[in-house]
Every structure is written in C-alpha cells, then in structure tokens.
Write a protein that binds this DNA or RNA. Structure first.
Lengths: 213, 213
DNA sequence: ACGAATTGTGATTCACTATTCACAATTATA
DNA sequence: TATAATTGTGAATAGTGAATCACAATTCGT
C-alpha cells in the first residue's frame, strides 16, 4: 500500500514526533531510520525526502525537547507568582512530565546522541544550561524578595533543583516505572525548601511544629 | 609488534578497566571491542580469548562499578564516625572520583546497555538501590543519634544525596570538564545539611550568624 | 627439551543500518 | 490537459562492528 503524498512540513513534524516517541520507548541507540519510517507509515528511503540525514532528525528532536522544556518554565512563570511556589510547581510538573515522556532524560543524557559530534554535545549543553539559568533566575528573584537565603549560591541551588528530578528519573527509568515519582517530589520539596528558604521562614515553621507537639 | 602473552585473569581486569575508562570518556554506545582492545594493547580478536562476547564485558563492567561504589561507602564508614561527617566525606570522595561517577549516569541512561536484555536493567537497578540503601542506612543512624531530623524520609534523603552528585557529573560531562565539581560540592553541602539536620543545629548556626553581623 | 595448553594475530564472515538512486505515483501549475 | 515539481518505493551500495577461525608464537608441565 502506498503512503499518501504529504507535504514535507507535515512529514517533518510526524518524523520528529515519531522519533521522540521511539526514543522514549527504546532509547536513542535503538532509534533507526527504518523504525521511524515504519511509525510514520512510509518507507525508509522516503524519509530522506524530508531530512538530509539521521543527524538532522536528531537535531530537530533536540529542538523539540528544548522548546518543550522551556515552555514548561514559561508556563509556570505565567501561572504562578513567587519564587518558591514557582519552583514547587515546576517540580511537580516535571514529576508528571517524566512519567509521561521519559524521552527527555534519555535524550538529554544519552551519549549516543552526540557520538563523535562535538557540536551536538554543545547543543545539549546549551539546552541544560539554558534550563538551569531559568531556574537560577527564579532563585535570584527569590533572594531579592527575601524568600530565599542570601547565602544560597543561585547556580548551586539550580543544580540541586535538578538534583531532585534527575536521580528520580534514573530510578524511575531503571525500575521500569516502579518508582513513585510524585511521592518523591512531595517528600523532597519540604527538604529542599529548608535548603534554600530564609531562616526566618524555617524558624517559624519550627515553632509551629513545637506548638503542635 | 606482538603483545606480551598474559594470563587471562590479568587480561580480564585490563579489559574491564579499559572498558570502564572508555565508557567514562565517550559513553556506552561508543564502546567497541576494537577500542577496548587497542587500549589494552591487543588485537580485537584476542579479546575473545578472555570474554565470550561483548555482553560479558559489559556485565563485568557493571560488577566493577558496583564494587567500587560499595567499597567507597565501606571505606568512609571505617574512616569517619557520625552520619553527617560520613555523608560529607562521601560527597567529597565522589567529587574527586569523577571519571567513575561520570560513568554512572552514562551507563544508567544508556539504552545500549539494556538493548534486548531486561536482566541487565535489573542489575543496574540493583546497583543503584544497593548504593542508596547504604546511604539510607547512614541517614537512619543519623536520625537515631539525633543529628538528623526525625521527619526526614530516609529514602528521600538518600535520593537527594545522589542528587548532589548525578547532575554535577552530567554537567561536567556535557561541558567538557568545564564544570567545577569540587566547588559545587562545597556549595551544595551546607545547603544539604540544612535540608536534613535537626532544627536545633540550624537555629544555633543561625544565632551565630546573627551575633557575627 | 618436547608436547600440550594458552594466548595473540590477520583475514574473513555476518548482520545491521544509513544512504543513494532510478523509477513510479501523485499533486501543483500554467 | 500537459508538464514540472514533489513525494513515495524497492533495490542496491557501503560502512561499521561483532564474532569466528586457522594458524603462529609463547608458556607450562613433565
């Protein structure tokens, strides 16, 4: 059966989406032109009408991921005011996203995607640092408005924020989805708040605990 | 030039070590029989005198990784008393042994290492959870002796501890060694202490800061 | 020192996958 | 409607890397 002739812009979208789905299911290494083509419903060679080579597909996948990650942050900035609530919202959003789409850590932290291509590595680095700088920005705002300690190093805080997500993603990945991402996020969040929020805030919450007990 | 004839036990060690180094440098996907052989100083086919197939090499690499991780913890337990000092010592130790730590996320996120082998994934899972349970044990001891808050969930704390190492390793990897792992560890540690140590401890250090300023 | 076992080597096979190409079908354009 | 442009197809090519094998060099047991 012959595939319906479809304009290249649409096909490109289909191809990138299919690639992302396949990566989520089987990883970057297992991603093959044949696999993508089959998922799209065309023959492998037809894929080359829309992409010059496999590398270009991977680049497009990276672009898609970057867009999704950053739109995540933008969304949260719009919906939620205040540094700490924003960070929490972002954390929970990631907890949800990772279980929905585990392709993100697989792609961003896969080695296969920058095999022998330093510029690709730079691109991945740019995605990560770009994301981190957004978080860092939120932290800096928190420091200015007094909700986050002055002696917190913003970069460190952003990396530690990533540290709540990344290991959890690892565990989730390795345990075949047998790790409760959301529970971890809920448990880790108050601890993280103690990490970075001002002493006044911590002491208040401590007093409250004392009164209760 | 002909390689020196060497007994298979020694070669096996050389091969596994070389493989781990190569993984740390380039990732699992780039790991080839030819690459390992070259590093060891033998010809590719000679490698099959010591391992039946590549998969067996990967299994041995996992065993080595596990052994090194756990011996790390054991060592710290011997040298250092007290939960918090032990955790800090472990953190700094990891910061120093980056090349191995770097291999960890690379291995974990590599799909190549699981390709068509579910039992391999279980093995990786066992290594990580085994390591985490050791950390968790330290945390529990800290809770018992009162240096760590009672309301800290030990599992969560151990995952967050991993969260200080993993993202840093990834960043270091992606930025071509352009990320100061030790600085991150030094910055992250006091924040992590605030995360988990008892309020009394935090308040005392807060008072001290107040007196100073 | 001599045969057997061990280890190393180069050539070769084999499977897999990206990529190309000539040609066919479809759609757009004039 | 006729022709050019676009997209799809199957076959063929080429490069890669794991694995095998016959044979050579080395070491070990005796």
């Amino acid at each position: 059966m012959r595939a319906q002739k479809t304009e290249t812009e649409v096909r490109q979208e289909q191809i990138v989406t299919a690639a992302l789905e396949l990566i989520g299911a089987q990883g970057v290494n297992a991603l093959s032109i044949a696999g993508i083509a089959e998922r799209v419903g065309i023959v492998p060679s037809a894929l080359y009408r829309h992409f010059k080579c496999k590398d270009d597909v991977l680049d497009a996948v990276l672009d898609l991921l970057k867009a999704r990650l950053l739109s995540n942050v933008t969304q949260v900035r719009k919906e939620t005011p205040g540094a700490l609530p924003r960070l929490k919202s972002l954390l929970m959003r990631h907890a949800r996203m990772l279980s929905e789409n585990r392709a993100i850590p697989l792609v961003v932290f896969s080695d296969g995607i920058y095999a022998g291509r330093p510029e690709r590595k730079a691109k991945v680095a740019a995605i990560i640092t770009g994301y981190l700088s957004k978080i860092q920005h939120i932290v800096e705002e928190g420091i200015q408005d007094g909700s986050i300690r002055k002696d917190v190093v913003p970069v460190t805080a952003s990396v530690m924020f990533l540290g709540m997500i990344l290991p959890a993603a690892v565990l989730w990945n390795v345990s075949e989805g047998n790790f409760d991402m959301n529970a971890h996020a809920e448990n880790a969040w108050p601890a993280f708040v103690r990490c970075i929020s001002t002493e006044e805030h911590n002491i208040k919450s401590y007093m409250k605990t004392c009164e209760e007990t």
